[in-house]
Simulated assay, not measured.
Amino acid sequence: MRHKVHQNDLPDGLDLGAIVAIDCETMGLHPHRDRLCVVQLSGGDGRAHLVQIAKDQTTAPNLCALLENPDVLKLFHFGRFDIAAMLNRFGAKAAPVYCTKIASRLVRTYTDRHGLAKLCQELLSVDISKQQQSSDWGAEKLTNAQIDYAASDVLHLHKLRDALNVMLLREDRMDIAQACFDFLPTRAQLDLAGWPDTDIFAHT
């Protein structure tokens, strides 16, 4: 199998390069309630590494070192959730980061469809299945379908970033996109600290 499944952490010495796509699978959408189960990563070479996180696990030294490495750009799609989930579990704040959903919202203003499947279809002519999205990620052993699904969430982010950057540059929105990416880890911290739905910039 081209995708590797690891227990508890990335293996020592694994080098995924300077740009790493990352996604998470959890038991639900509330980081304080629903535990982190799987973190999947790809260096953009068509292969994915899946890390299964144990129920009571609070450390993953190699994964956390990658998250906090200032020389490695972390790619996400809706990074706000994934960054918060890993920060809540391990105390490691991912940075620097790039989020394809934020990039899409800033530049694909002709649509309100910014999901990963839609982006892959429109920008890369790639169809990905979301069938396993709601499966039990806390199971002791992942099925082949779960592995393939988890991998699909990170295999295309490098090419999506390239395509979205072309559009951001064309529309003169790269600078504001970068500012949003820089703020994203702080936005995740605000979510965890109790301000998930509050616009702290609002006048009222």
Results as ranks from 00 to 15, higher is better:
residue 74 K to N: 02
residue 42 S to R: 01
residue 95 A to K: 11
residue 34 D to P: 00
residue 165 N to W: 12
residue 109 T to A: 10
residue 125 S to H: 11
residue 123 L to H: 05
residue 82 D to T: 02
residue 124 L to N: 07
residue 60 A to N: 03
residue 119 L to Q: 08
residue 170 R to L: 13
residue 86 M to S: 04
residue 97 V to K: 00
residue 58 T to E: 05
residue 137 W to L: 02
residue 72 V to S: 02
residue 182 D to L: 01
residue 86 M to T: 15
residue 83 I to F: 03
residue 46 G to L: 00
residue 39 V to F: 01
residue 181 F to Q: 04
residue 76 F to N: 03
residue 82 D to E: 04
residue 145 A to C: 06
residue 2 R to N: 05
residue 68 E to T: 15
residue 99 C to Q: 02
residue 136 D to M: 01
residue 101 K to Y: 11
residue 176 I to M: 12
residue 180 C to Y: 12
residue 4 K to T: 15
residue 72 V to P: 04
residue 182 D to F: 00
residue 29 L to A: 09
residue 158 H to D: 13
residue 72 V to I: 14
residue 13 G to E: 03
residue 146 Q to H: 06
residue 190 L to A: 09
residue 110 Y to W: 12
residue 168 L to S: 03
residue 201 F to W: 13
residue 108 R to T: 05
residue 36 L to S: 02
residue 79 G to E: 03
residue 127 D to V: 08
residue 164 L to V: 03
residue 200 I to G: 03
residue 2 R to V: 10
residue 97 V to G: 05
residue 114 H to S: 10
residue 114 H to M: 10
residue 2 R to C: 06
residue 165 N to C: 11
residue 17 G to H: 03
residue 152 S to N: 03
residue 9 D to K: 00
residue 145 A to L: 11
residue 94 A to M: 06
residue 81 F to L: 08
residue 66 L to M: 15
residue 21 A to I: 00
residue 148 D to E: 11
residue 10 L to S: 05
residue 47 R to H: 13
residue 76 F to M: 10
residue 133 Q to P: 06
residue 175 D to S: 15
residue 53 I to R: 09
residue 117 A to K: 11
residue 198 T to N: 07
residue 174 M to V: 11
residue 67 L to E: 05
residue 139 A to L: 08
residue 13 G to M: 01
residue 174 M to N: 13
residue 57 Q to I: 00
residue 126 V to M: 06
residue 107 V to Q: 02
residue 169 L to A: 08
residue 10 L to N: 06
residue 65 A to H: 02
residue 183 F to E: 14
residue 172 D to H: 12
residue 59 T to W: 04
residue 147 I to P: 02
residue 118 K to P: 00
residue 55 K to A: 13
residue 135 S to H: 09
residue 12 D to P: 12
residue 54 A to D: 15
